[in-house]
């Protein structure tokens, strides 16, 4: 087939141009700005070497957000995947109405982060309060007003929202497991526990690779839900990294430092997700 260079660039142009404007140029200028005393507006700024990075690492809010984000990511990734996996196992058991259950479990995923945050604010503040009062359970009252209730509130919210999505991925993988493989294992006398542990689970690894990757990136990048559920409060105790970066720039007006935090954030997220991909990929088995 005759292939002209003109067509190649012509077909690529709309994507490439907007992609450069939205991603490539800001990434490169962002790296440059992170080494300067940039004020967010003007391009002429002085080089300050690693000062932004040093002050970012020393910044107490950044440290707190870092610890908070890591704790949140670890617990949420585990919780989301456990719930999703359990839900996937339940709805693939050939029971009545499993399609309906599937639809219900997935539905929260479509609702935007801003709405979900406000909705759960109502649940945690008003509904939990009144249930706590009626049943006389103290720990149900005053949610979101302390650091730990804010933390667990966010975890519950994200489990509620994200599990359905991961469930779909696990369902697709479970349905990919050939029935004859399980059949022959059963004939060989494998118990259903062994079938699950020795056959289903290893063959599920590709789904875990994707599921973990998606939950990891989504949890790290979480912003809307954090903003609308607790707003980082009380007293910035529940701020995640994304929100800290925004606040450093927009309310503290320290653009250079905010940009340095952004670059650190990029490196950390990239390192963690890439090593996760490599690790779980190595555990996948060939059929």
């Amino acid at each position: 087939m005759r292939k002209s260079k003109k067509i190649f660039w012509l077909f690529l142009a709309p994507c490439l141009i907007t992609f450069c404007i939205a991603v490539v140029i800001p990434t490169l200028t962002g790296i440059y700005y992170s080494f300067t005393d940039w004020d967010g507006l003007h391009a002429n700024c002085d080089f300050v070497f690693l000062n932004n990075y040093i002050s970012a690492v020393r910044d107490i809010y950044f440290q707190n957000a870092f610890v908070f984000t890591f704790k949140f990511v670890i617990i949420t990734v585990i919780a989301v995947n456990v719930v999703a996996f359990a839900a996937a196992m339940l709805v693939t058991q050939n029971i009545k109405g499993n399609n309906l259950f599937r639809s219900i479990f997935f539905m929260p995923n479509l609702v935007g982060g801003v709405l979900v945050g406000f909705a759960w604010q109502f649940i945690f503040c008003d509904v939990f309060d009144s249930i706590g009062e009626i049943l006389g359970i103290n720990w149900l009252c005053d949610w979101l007003s302390t650091k730990s209730t804010g933390f667990w509130g966010l975890v519950i919210l994200v489990v509620w929202q994200m599990s359905g999505y991961m469930m779909l991925i696990y369902i697709a993988q479970i349905q990919n497991i050939p029935e004859n493989l399980l059949e022959s294992a059963r004939i060989d006398g494998a118990s259903s526990f062994q079938c699950f542990w020795k056959i289903k689970l290893p063959l599920m690894m590709p789904a875990f690779t994707i599921g973990l990757f998606l939950t990891l990136t989504n949890c790290f990048k979480l912003y809307d839900q954090n903003l609308t559920l607790t707003g980082g409060g009380p007293a910035k105790a529940t701020e995640m990294l994304t929100m800290d970066i925004c606040n450093t720039a927009f309310s503290r007006n320290m653009y250079g430092m905010a940009q340095a935090k952004g670059i650190i954030f990029l490196i950390v997220v990239a390192l963690i997700t890439v090593s996760q991909l490599m690790f779980t990929k190595s555990k996948e088995v060939e059929m």
Binding site: P26, K221, Q259, F265
Partner: peptide
Amino acid sequence: VLVPFQCVMLPLLAE
């Protein structure tokens, strides 16, 4: 795909 929005947000806005 790995680049988070917060990382490019500020230069993007200026641009």
